[in-house]
Amino acid sequence: METDNDTDADVSLTRRLAGGDKAALADAFDRFAPTLTRYAWALAGSRQDVEELVQDTFLTLWQKADTLQLSTRALLPWLLVVCRNHARNQARAVAKQASDELPAELASPPGAEEARERLRWVRDEIDSLAPLDRRICELCLIEGHSYTEAAEMLGLSVGALTQRVSRSRARLKKAVTHDEH
């Protein structure tokens, strides 16, 4: 759980980064690289892809440091979203390359249809949510919009949206751990 000291440290670190302090980037790397690496392993399948995701995330942090606005004063959520977005871009590039190289009938990876069917129940669980919660899940968890973007689209505060996402994730987690699908 984030403490006030952690968020104060994040604000200070963000200011240092915005000022072009290279030591701040090293500090950010030391502090967040282990967590980002674990997260990247959930998004990518090879060591090379994981390393690339982590590097790209910190490069983005460095490049955007002077315009960075943290909605929660915590840097880690922003880094995780950036990492997820890089993973999606990486997956799109791989898929595009594969589809460009293969005939259309072979473009779908083997087992894709089976995987979609096995995960159909997750979509069914999302569909059973209240309409607003379902739309929030679609925007944040499926389409990859940031909480700030989704809140703006739906006319909610970031805090209200965060609470709704948290409740929906808890419900989905409960369904995953308690149901046999």
Score class of each variant (00 low, 15 high):
residue 3 T to S: 15
residue 5 N to W: 13
residue 6 D to Y: 00
residue 10 D to A: 04
residue 13 L to Q: 02
residue 13 L to W: 06
residue 14 T to L: 15
residue 16 R to K: 15
residue 19 G to F: 12
residue 20 G to K: 06
residue 22 K to Y: 09
residue 24 A to V: 13
residue 26 A to R: 15
residue 29 F to A: 14
residue 29 F to P: 06
residue 29 F to I: 14
residue 29 F to Y: 15
residue 31 R to D: 06
residue 31 R to V: 01
residue 33 A to Q: 15
residue 36 L to W: 04
residue 37 T to M: 05
residue 37 T to E: 10
residue 38 R to A: 14
residue 43 L to Y: 02
residue 43 L to R: 09
residue 44 A to G: 09
residue 46 S to P: 07
residue 47 R to H: 10
residue 47 R to P: 04
residue 48 Q to Y: 11
residue 48 Q to P: 06
residue 49 D to Q: 15
residue 49 D to L: 09
residue 49 D to E: 15
residue 52 E to Y: 08
residue 53 L to V: 03
residue 54 V to P: 00
residue 55 Q to A: 13
residue 56 D to V: 05
residue 57 T to C: 08
residue 57 T to R: 08
residue 64 K to E: 15
residue 64 K to I: 05
residue 67 T to P: 05
residue 67 T to G: 14
residue 68 L to A: 08
residue 68 L to H: 05
residue 68 L to F: 02
residue 68 L to W: 03
residue 68 L to I: 11
residue 68 L to Q: 09
residue 70 L to S: 05
residue 70 L to Y: 11
residue 71 S to G: 15
residue 72 T to K: 10
residue 73 R to V: 01
residue 75 L to P: 03
residue 76 L to P: 01
residue 76 L to R: 12
residue 81 V to W: 08
residue 82 V to D: 01
residue 84 R to E: 00
residue 84 R to H: 06
residue 85 N to I: 03
residue 85 N to S: 11
residue 85 N to C: 05
residue 89 N to Y: 03
residue 91 A to F: 09
residue 91 A to R: 13
residue 93 A to P: 02
residue 93 A to F: 03
residue 98 A to H: 11
residue 105 E to Y: 10
residue 106 L to Y: 11
residue 106 L to C: 09
residue 107 A to L: 07
residue 111 G to I: 06
residue 111 G to N: 00
residue 112 A to P: 02
residue 113 E to A: 14
residue 113 E to M: 10
residue 115 A to G: 03
residue 118 R to W: 06
residue 121 W to C: 08
residue 126 I to E: 03
residue 128 S to L: 09
residue 128 S to W: 06
residue 128 S to H: 12
residue 129 L to A: 08
residue 132 L to D: 06
residue 133 D to V: 02
residue 134 R to C: 05
residue 135 R to V: 05
residue 136 I to T: 00
residue 138 E to N: 10
residue 138 E to D: 13
residue 139 L to E: 02
residue 140 C to N: 04
residue 141 L to Y: 09
residue 141 L to H: 11
residue 142 I to P: 02
residue 144 G to D: 04
residue 147 Y to D: 01
residue 150 A to L: 01
residue 151 A to Q: 07
residue 151 A to L: 06
residue 155 G to M: 07
residue 156 L to C: 04
residue 159 G to L: 05
residue 160 A to T: 13
residue 161 L to A: 00
residue 162 T to I: 06
residue 170 A to D: 14
residue 175 A to I: 00
residue 177 T to M: 10
residue 177 T to E: 10
residue 178 H to C: 01
